[in-house]
Every structure is written in structure tokens, then in C-alpha cells.
């Protein structure tokens, strides 16, 4: 997984719960990297899963809520680093629809070998859009948080209904979005 996910998680934990909590999480996980992450690197998925699991235990909150919160924070970090992608799109819908074909494509060029979730866009109506999410990582709640992060970035609201979910036995996840002016 891309290093920026790790560094963003570290930033979020250190910012809200202190350096001690982050150190505790690192100490509690068997990390091949020693917990040293840079945004440009790629690190094992199991390390982020373990760290998120540790955070959940420490905060005692449901995983979906934790991932949504982290998703929002992560989008803020990403948009600071790659602001051009945000300003080049006029609306949150345009931005979300560019993720698969533009953003993921550019990341693949810069960091060959990066694996991405598969996104598909259906039910494209005036104020609605459904996003199909498929990934063996099953991080759909993180994706939900990221979408919320997009809404924050554009100072608008996006209604999200997680109508299908791999965690509930569905083949893929589906998030039905409603864009409010």
C-alpha cells in the first residue's frame, strides 16, 4: 500500500492522540519496516491493517467509523499534496468520476506496481451517481470517508448510501451518492 496512507495515519494519530499512542501502536505490531514510512514508498498491506486494528482497540470504536474518519483525514492530506487534481475539476462529481481514469492512471505511471481498487460509475443522473467498489482489501469504509473528504474539499454535502457491501456478503460494494448544491 502507498506510503501516504501510512504517513497520514501517523499524522492523524499523533495530532489527535499524541506521539505516545502512535509509538504504542507501532510497538504492538510486528512491522518489517520498523514503522518508518515515507509518502513515496510502498509497504505491506498487513502493516496498515495491524495498525488500524491497534487504533480501533485503543479507541474502542467500530472499524467502519474509524475508517470513515481516517478516510476524511486522508483525503485532506492527499488534496494538500496534489491540489492540482482538485482545482482542475469543477465539481465533486467530476472529481469522483476522474479517480479511475485520471488519478489512478497517473499514480500508476509514477509508481508502477501500485494496486488500486476497481471503481465503476453507474446510475449517473442529474444529482446522483452510484460508485461500484471492488477490492480484495475491502476498504469500502475508507472509500466512503474519502468521498466525504471530497465533499469537505468542495464545501458541499454528498449523501452516501452504502447499498451493497462486501462485508455483508455482496459481491461488491455500491455507494449511491446524492450531490446537494
Amino acid at each position: 500500500m502507498k506510503g501516504i496512507i501510512f504517513t497520514s495515519l501517523a499524522d492523524m494519530v499523533e495530532e489527535h492522540y499524541g506521539l505516545k499512542s502512535w509509538q504504542g501502536m507501532l510497538d504492538a505490531c510486528p512491522l518489517a519496516t520498523g514503522g518508518s514510512y515515507s509518502s513515496g514508498g510502498i509497504y505491506p498491506d498487513k502493516e496498515i491493517m495491524c495498525l488500524v486494528g491497534q487504533l480501533q482497540q485503543r479507541l474502542d470504536v467500530p472499524l467502519d467509523i474509524l475508517l470513515r474518519t481516517f478516510g476524511e483525514y486522508l483525503f485532506e492530506c492527499l488534496s494538500k499534496m496534489h491540489h492540482n487534481y482538485v482545482i482542475s475539476k469543477a465539481s465533486p462529481r467530476d472529481f469522483i468520476m476522474s479517480i479511475n481514469d485520471e488519478i489512478h492512471r497517473d499514480i500508476e505511471k509514477l509508481y508502477p506496481g501500485t494496486s488500486f481498487p476497481f471503481l465503476e460509475y453507474i446510475n449517473d443522473t442529474d444529482n446522483g451517481l452510484s460508485v461500484i467498489y471492488k477490492s480484495p482489501r475491502k476498504l469500502c469504509f475508507l472509500a466512503e470517508g474519502l468521498i466525504q473528504g471530497v465533499a469537505n474539499q468542495y464545501n458541499t454535502d454528498i449523501g452516501i448510501i452504502h447499498s451493497k457491501c462486501m462485508h455483508r456478503g455482496d459481491e461488491h460494494c455500491q455507494m449511491d451518492l446524492t450531490f446537494y448544491e
Binding site: L19, W22, Q23, G35, S36, Y37, S38, S39, G41
Partner: peptide
């Protein structure tokens, strides 16, 4: 933390 940051910086520089 400093030691981790130092390693991360080195890795970033290598990248």
C-alpha cells in the same frame, strides 16, 4: 520518532 523520521527521509531521498 526522530530515528524513524530519519530513516523515512533517507528512503524518500532514495526514491
Amino acid at each position: 520518532a526522530y530515528s524513524r523520521e530519519k530513516r523515512a527521509r533517507k528512503e524518500t531521498e532514495e526514491i
